[in-house]
Simulated assay, not measured.
Amino acid sequence: MDNFMTHIVSITIQLFLLITFLQSGIDKIVDWKGNVGWLKEHFAASFMGKMVPLLLVIILILEVFTALCCITAIYALLCCGYGFYAILSAFSASVTLLLLLFGQRVAKDYQGALTITCYFIVAIFGLYMATK
Rank of each mutant, 00 (worst) to 15 (best):
F65N: 12
K40D: 04
L39H: 10
K50L: 09
W32K: 03
F84E: 06
S89C: 14
Q104W: 03
I87K: 07
A45S: 15
T117Q: 05
K28N: 13
V64C: 06
Y75D: 07
I74D: 01
F47S: 07
W32Q: 10
L17M: 11
C80E: 13
T96E: 14
V106D: 02
F47N: 03
I29K: 13
T96R: 00
V95T: 09
Q23N: 14
G34E: 13
I59Y: 12
L99N: 04
T72P: 06
G34R: 08
I58D: 11
L100P: 07
K28Q: 15
V36S: 03
F120L: 14
C70Q: 05
I58F: 06
I13L: 10
A130R: 02
K108Y: 00
L39P: 03
G83Y: 00
C79D: 13
S46W: 04
T66N: 03
F102G: 06
V36L: 08
F43N: 08
S10F: 05
C69L: 14
I58A: 11
L17H: 02
T6R: 11
I26V: 15
V64K: 05
L62N: 11
D2F: 08
I121C: 02
V9K: 07
V64H: 07
K132P: 00
L101E: 03
L56G: 11
Y85S: 15
L54S: 07
L88T: 12
P53S: 03
L15H: 02
F21S: 01
C80Y: 12
G103N: 04
S89I: 00
L17T: 02
I121M: 07
W38Q: 07
I59V: 14
L114K: 05
W38N: 04
L54G: 08
A93E: 01
T66G: 00
I87F: 08
F65P: 00
L101V: 01
V64A: 12
I74E: 08
I121R: 01
L60P: 09
A123T: 10
I13H: 09
T72L: 12
G37T: 06
L127K: 09
A130P: 09
C80N: 08
G49D: 00
V57M: 10
E63C: 14
N3I: 01
D31M: 01
D27R: 12
T131C: 06
K33Y: 06
L60G: 05
H7D: 02
Q104H: 10
A93H: 06
Q14I: 05
C79A: 05
T12E: 02
Y85H: 05
W38P: 00
I71H: 01
M5S: 13
Q111M: 05
L99T: 04
L77A: 09
L101R: 01
L88C: 08
I121W: 04
I116V: 14
T115Y: 15
G81W: 12
I19K: 09
G103Q: 04
G25I: 09
F16H: 04
T72R: 10
V36W: 05
A44M: 03
V36A: 00
